[in-house]
């Protein structure tokens, strides 16, 4: 009698082939199948690390932050575009006003009132989220161990996004004459740029960056500005976060 080869035994075990007839008649192959099943039972018995009842909650907390960041990122871009459009509209209005005959000109304040006021809310809302993100990045850097190199490659694209949005908000704030926002955004921009170019910070570079953050009180400025920034819109996840805390 020709015995089953190993592959046939495995296929039979997983139900991919039917060798029952042979196994019924062949004690040797039946014994080999028993051994195979005992081996696999050992594998089954190896314990998977158990995640306790708190695990889903922990996982949700990790996810919530990333989902929220993703939502904010999308919203920030939309708001930045809206702010830029508001600036363009205001600029167009000013230009039209200048070209109009002297007698029909509106006062400057009236010409800039509509779009910039709309832009103001938009800007405040968008900048608040931007400040949150920038603060998180800078806090991570400030709290890193200066005795060790720091791999920031995973943060690079985040820093690149922040640099881009930082520029838009800074320019918008300058045009609107909001020196307070513009100044803080100018202060943090070099650090964000450096992070966006750094794949890995050596301990020396990290220490230097931490020194800059500290000596210029960047985190303090960010927090003060953030606390003073009105944000009328709160998304669902943010509300949910507050609810969970």
């Amino acid at each position: 009698m020709q015995h089953l080869n190993d592959e046939e035994l495995v296929a039979h075990h997983y139900g991919d082939a039917d060798a029952a007839e042979h196994l019924h008649a062949c004690a040797e192959c039946a014994a080999r199948l028993t051994t195979l099943r005992q081996v696999l039972a050992l594998v089954d018995a190896a314990e998977v690390p158990v995640r306790g009842a708190e695990y889903p909650e922990q996982m949700w907390n990790r996810l919530r932050w990333r989902l929220e960041r993703r939502e904010r990122k999308t919203r920030r871009w939309l708001l930045a575009i809206a702010a830029a459009l508001a600036m363009v509209l205001a600029g167009g209005e000013l230009l039209r006003n200048r070209r109009a005959p002297a007698g029909t000109r509106q006062p400057l304040a009236a010409a800039t009132a509509t779009a910039p006021d709309q832009g103001s809310n938009v800007l405040a809302n968008a900048v608040g989220d931007h400040l949150d993100d920038a603060e998180r990045v800078l806090t991570e850097i400030a709290n890193a161990d200066p005795a060790r190199d720091l791999d920031v490659s995973s943060e690079q694209s985040r820093a690149e996004d922040l640099v881009t949005s930082n520029r838009i908000y800074r320019q918008t704030a300058m045009r609107r004459g909001d020196a307070r926002i513009a100044s803080v955004l100018s202060d943090i921009e070099p650090v964000l740029i450096e992070l966006s170019h750094a794949g890995k910070l050596s301990s020396g570079e990290l220490a230097e960056l931490q020194k800059r953050i500290e000596s210029r009180n960047l985190l303090f400025k960010l927090r003060v500005l953030n606390s003073r920034t009105e944000r009328p819109n709160h998304n669902l996840l943010a509300a949910n976060r507050m609810h969970s805390l």
């Binding site: 190993d6 592959e7 495995v10 296929a11 997983y14 014994a31 028993t34 051994t35 195979l36 005992q38 081996v39 696999l40 050992l42 594998v43």
Partner: peptide, 21 residues
């Protein structure tokens, strides 16, 4: 691939189940 995996496991672990047999 499945077969190779099972064979490797069996080669490593079979000595542990033989005494039971």
């Amino acid at each position: 691939t499945i077969f190779r995996a099972v064979r490797k496991l069996r080669d490593s672990l079979e000595p542990l189940v033989r005494p039971t047999q």
